[in-house]
Design a binder for these strands. Structure first.
Length: 1042
RNA sequence: GGGCGUAUAGCUCAGCUGGUUAGAGCGCACGCCUGAUAAGCGUGAGGUCGGUAGUUCAAGUCUACCUAUGCCCA
């Protein structure tokens, strides 16, 4: 054992231990150690490495460390591979910025240059990540990491795609997406909402005359006239009220929402209501389109009234025009009705052939031309303008258009039932997420658009014949090489898009890959297979490891990784991807707002780690709702409190042990502690076993948030009860008998506690365990050990209960002393513990000395006759009686309240009583006590105590002696003496009582203050003579070092 | 607009399947320092559990509605 510093710096300690782990390869050995054991499968969700890690990452990382460490100590083998999400938009955007091509498009530098720039930049922050993650104490393999851009990973992703294709789960369709005509690309919703501007747009109302009654027309309103040439239908809400009315101005008849008539007529005299109807009554009525470009679509059911609930009567006419190519709802409703879309606008945003009159015109420029044409055709009834907020392309500054784009879908709707069944087999922390947030999301899941019109990603492995349009899906590199006749080493777009071959279907055309790449969520969802290059390698290993035992990520992954994992594992294997998941919440700044670099409203993670250490941060984070999906307001003070409340007290206990063990030359190998007859030793050993049991139970259920309060409670018992009450045992001379037991016990308890702490505070646990077992001289580590057993054999619940009662007795005694204003230094003759059970006296007997010392009383006695001290009051034990009595509870409760003291005592003594026809025994009643007036009694829940406050002259003298000891001790400290310095004392007092007290107890006082000479003298003068006032008695004292 | 959370002491949060006197830390008041620990110890004050209605013998806990607030989706 080595001696330790008293003023510990945890961050320094952690640094030292990190270096040791690295040197001894402890992490890898902790896995290798369990070579033959069952594998505990953990999947690590890959983060983007294009930013520094924030608290959310650290929190998830800490959970991902604690759980695997725990199961490793439980004897399992837990591989932990780190992964990076290397593809996707964030990387592309950053590279566009770096290359200076924002708004110009990737074509301006070429895909090859662009993709290679992406490849070079993705791991830019990997080093910083590694260093921060390491600092948090997280053990994870950064060397054997997986990257979504590795050819092996991408090949597995292709395999997954091919599997889905073979199962008929992939199809090509359209989705209306925000599209930038400036950048020639659809945008993500995120990008689309980046730049909203207030703009003025035309707001026009046009007529759609009934085919059967041309004088009557629907009124339709729009702010995008350019979508009118592509109009294929109109829609109404089934439950809304509509009217047919006559316009007195020109006699024509209009149909519109009843609520919106006021928008078109100022006065009621201007029109006459002819008919009222519900929206659904209008269903199917055919109308005459504005233009005849798509007249052929009438056969599909176009140009009539459709019904859908998305229609509102808030503005316009309550009848909306549908252009399925240019609106998401339009598209959905028309698709449902079997109307295929019409899209007369090219990728530049210019009209094409079908819309002949405006061919080549940019859509926004065509607006006024279209309006003019409508006016000419007398189809325009109102022309206004509207200022509204409209999304713009952040990069090119052009207004976005919503446009149907060809995309590839996974048919999630077909998997829904299987996914719900798989989800039912998973366990979530917090539980409600499974059927709540996540379950609801699954129930409402729509087909998943997995294609992206981007460059840096896994290319969608579909080749299309330019002649027959036939599709061919490639599921491996070997297949691609065989078909193309070329060697393929990298699957990125710029390396494979030149590959093509003669179409095997028609034998005429040449095949070409479709232009899209896969959504990077598809890749992370494929991670369980792709990280191991399944099925090309590791076949058995991967299949045996499904579903994973454990994953942990943030709440934001509900629609992210949790979802994509589930979609793909269900599609491939009809199984869930994971069995247990811990979901962590958002970490907010202390002010409750989002953490913002710009506002600097939070301390950087590295700063917290360097200042307070990782152990403290770990305990702080897992002791919060953040480990069950609740938001956490991060507070540095909270981290500091953990240090103050848990780590430092434990360090002090450890320091106490080491200090004395070094002095006494205690050798843990020689002194067995297991058989100590001392009741306190047995108690603290039982406590640590109970704690191990509790921690196992909570960790087995993944309830990390239940652990820290238990740890703190134990540390309090260890330091403020066990050590404080037992320290005198360590001061005795020699190293025999009881003292050896004390050492043995404290050693064993600290060692077991450090084992138990290892998953949570890996550094402090390593320090304590290593030093106390001497194992740090070799290669061993606390993290290579088994988690401590709890188990009935090593626990003594009865003893723990007795000890708890003793603690209560002491607390009550202290409270009475405060109340009576009698300081602890004044001895009192007696305290009586009052409890109806006479057996308590026996159980307390071994603890009597402790209680007397703690409360400074001469005698401890016991009484069972509660009536002499306290007034009993009874309440019905609702938990017992409630289910039994039901409605009768009220009358019984009233009767119980009226019971006499005698009858209550009789029940307590084991009798029964009859009340309202019910037989009640002691278990049916809850008895509370209040002190009788005129007594010094404290009533607790388990027992009561009575304090005899009679101070006899003898006790007074003893009290004065203790006061004197206290003053001299303070004087010693003020004089700067060392603890072990011997002193001489001279004193003088005029007070006869005090003089007598100091005479009687002179030897005791002198002994306590280490005085080798002790002398009463005549009056003392001079500055070295200090005057004290002991409750009004004056004494002057001189001390000196001998 | 829809889905899912959250609301308990001045502050940050516990409170398990409804049941007894609703707990802890910080802060506050008062007291206690040489024998591990003042980054300590003790004692105490402080709460109509967001609101309303309901279910029940019994509601901080269950239900409905409302208010505030957060996340996700549209």
């Amino acid at each position: 054992m080595r001696s330790i510093e008293k003023d510990v710096e945890f961050p320094q300690l952690e640094k030292r231990i990190l270096a040791r782990w690295k040197e001894k390869d402890t992490f890898r050995r902790s896995i290798r150690n369990r070579a033959g054991a069952r594998e505990y499968v953990f999947f690590d969700g890959p983060p983007f490495a294009n930013n520094l890690p924030h608290y959310g990452h650290l929190l998830a990382g800490i959970i991902k460390d604690i759980v695997p460490r725990y199961w490793t100590m439980r004897g399992l083998r837990v591989h932990r591979r780190f992964g990076w999400d290397t593809h996707g938009l964030p990387v592309e955007m950053e590279v566009e910025k770096a290359l200076g091509i924002v708004g110009k498009g990737v074509a301006s530098v070429g895909i090859e240059t662009f993709n290679e720039a992406c490849r070079a930049s993705v791991l830019k922050y990997a080093r910083e990540w590694e260093s921060t993650v390491e600092k948090t104490g997280r053990w994870v393999d950064f060397e054997d990491r997986y990257l979504t851009m590795q050819p092996s990973f991408m090949e597995s992703v292709w395999w997954v795609f091919r599997q889905l294709w073979d199962k008929g789960l992939i199809y090509e369709g359209h989705r209306v997406l925000p599209y930038s005509t400036g950048c020639h690309t659809p945008l993500s919703n995120f990008e689309a909402s980046a730049d909203y501007r207030d703009v003025q747009d035309p707001a026009i109302t046009v007529t759609m005359p009934w085919v059967d009654d041309p004088d009557c027309a629907f009124l339709v309103w729009t702010t995008t006239p350019w979508t009118l040439p592509a109009n294929l239908a109109v829609a109404v809400h089934p439950e809304l009220d509509y009217v047919k009315l006559r316009d007195h101005a020109d006699g024509r008849r209009w149909v519109l929402s009843a609520n919106l008539v006021g928008q078109y007529f100022k006065k009621p005299e201007e029109y006459t209501i002819l008919e009222r109807m519900k929206g659904r009554d209008l269903a199917g009525i055919p109308y005459v389109p504005l233009f005849d470009f798509f007249e052929g679509k009438r056969a599909e059911g176009a140009f009539r009234v459709l019904v859908d609930e998305y229609v509102t009567a808030e503005d316009g006419t309550g009848i909306v025009h549908l252009a399925p190519a240019y609106g998401e709802d339009d598209h959905r409703v028309c698709l449902r009705e079997g109307i295929s879309l019409a899209d007369p606008v090219d990728l530049d945003g210019r009209f094409t052939e079908p819309a002949e009159p405006w061919k080549g015109q940019y859509i926004k420029d065509a607006d006024p031309l279209i309006i003019a044409e409508l006016k000419r055709r007398k189809r325009l009834v109102k022309h206004a303008t509207l200022v509204h907020s409209y999304p713009y392309c952040e990069r090119s500054g052009t207004p976005l258009m919503y446009k149907a784009m060809p995309v590839w879908f996974v048919k999630v709707t077909e998997l829904r039932e299987c996914m719900l069944a798989a989800n039912a087999k998973t366990a979530w922390i917090p539980e409600n997420l499974r059927d709540g947030r996540f379950g609801k999301w699954l129930e409402g899941a729509r087909d998943w658009n997995i294609s992206r019109n981007r460059y840096w990603g896994t290319p969608i492995p579909i080749w299309r014949c330019e002649a027959c349009r036939g599709l061919q899906v490639i599921g491996s590199i070997a297949e691609l090489e065989a078909l193309s006749g070329e060697k393929v080493e990298d699957l990125h777009m710029h390396r494979i898009d030149h590959l093509g071959w003669t179409c095997p279907t028609c034998g005429a055309g040449r095949t070409r890959r479709v232009p899209e790449v896969l959504d990077c969520w598809f890749e992370s969802g494929a991670m369980p297979y792709a990280q191991n290059h399944y099925p090309f390698e590791n076949r058995e290993h991967v299949e045996n490891g499904l579903p994973a035992d454990f994953i942990a990520e943030g709440l934001d992954q509900t629609r992210g990784w949790f979802y994509t994992l589930m979609v793909l594992s269900t599609a491939l294997f009809d199984r869930p991807a994971f069995s247990n998941v811990i979901v962590n919440g958002l970490i907010l700044a202390e002010d409750g707002k989002k953490m913002s670099k710009r506002l600097r409203n939070y301390p950087p993670p590295d700063e917290i780690l360097d200042l307070h250490g990782a152990d403290a941060l770990r305990l702080y984070l897992i002791n919060s709702g953040a480990v069950r999906a609740e938001d956490l307001r991060f507070s540095e003070r909270g981290v500091r409190d953990v240090v103050r409340l848990a780590l430092l007290p434990l360090w002090n206990a450890y320091n106490f042990f080491v200090t004395y063990a070094m002095i006494d030359g205690f050798n843990p190998a020689k002194e067995p502690a297991t058989d100590s007859p001392d009741i306190m030793d047995q108690w603290i050993r039982s406590r640590v076993s109970t704690l191990a049991d509790t921690v196992r139970r909570e960790m087995d259920a993944y309830r990390l948030y239940r652990v820290v309060p238990e740890l703190i409670r134990f540390i309090d018992d260890l330091t403020n009860w066990y050590i404080r009450l037992n320290r005198r045992r360590f001061w005795k001379p020699g190293l025999e008998g009881d003292k050896a037991h004390a050492y043995g016990t404290l050693h064993e308890v600290l060692v077991r506690f450090s084992l138990l702490l290892a998953p949570f505070t890996p550094f402090l646990a390593e320090e304590i365990w290593g030093n106390l077992t001497g194992a740090e001289d070799g290669d061993d580590s606390v993290h290579l050990q088994d988690f401590p057993e709890g188990g009935a054999g090593s626990m003594d619940p009865g003893l723990e209960r007795t000890f708890f009662l003793m603690q209560e007795a002491i607390l009550l005694g202290r409270s009475l002393r405060e109340e009576q204003k009698i300081g602890v230094r004044q001895p009192l003759p007696e305290m009586t513990v009052i409890h109806p059970d006479a057996g308590l006296a026996d159980r307390f007997a071994p603890l009597a000395g402790v209680i007397r010392d703690e409360l400074n009383v001469k005698r401890l006695s016991f009484a069972t006759n509660e009536a002499d001290y306290v007034h009993l009051e009874a309440k019905p034990n609702l938990k017992v009686l409630g289910p039994r009595l039901g409605k009768k509870m009220k009358v019984v409760a009233a009767a119980v309240a009226g019971l006499s003291q005698d009858r209550l005592r009789a029940v307590q003594a084991g009798g029964t009583i009859e009340l309202e026809g019910e037989t009640l025994d002691a278990d049916c009643l809850l008895i509370t006590r209040t002190a009788l007036a005129g007594q010094v009694v404290g009533a607790g829940s388990g027992l009561s105590v009575s304090l005899n406050t009679t101070v006899t002259p003898e006790l007074r003298a003893e009290g004065l002696a203790r006061e004197m000891i206290n003053r001299i001790q303070r004087l010693r400290k003020d004089s700067g003496f060392e603890v072990q310095d011997r002193i001489g004392v001279r004193y003088h007092t005029e007070d006869a009582g005090l003089a007598a007290a100091l005479e009687t107890h002179g030897a005791t006082v002198a002994g306590e203050v280490l005085a080798v000479s002790w002398e009463a003298t005549g009056p003392l003068e001079g500055p070295e003579a200090k005057e004290f006032d002991l409750d009004g008695r004056i004494v002057r004292v001189v001390i000196w070092k001998v």
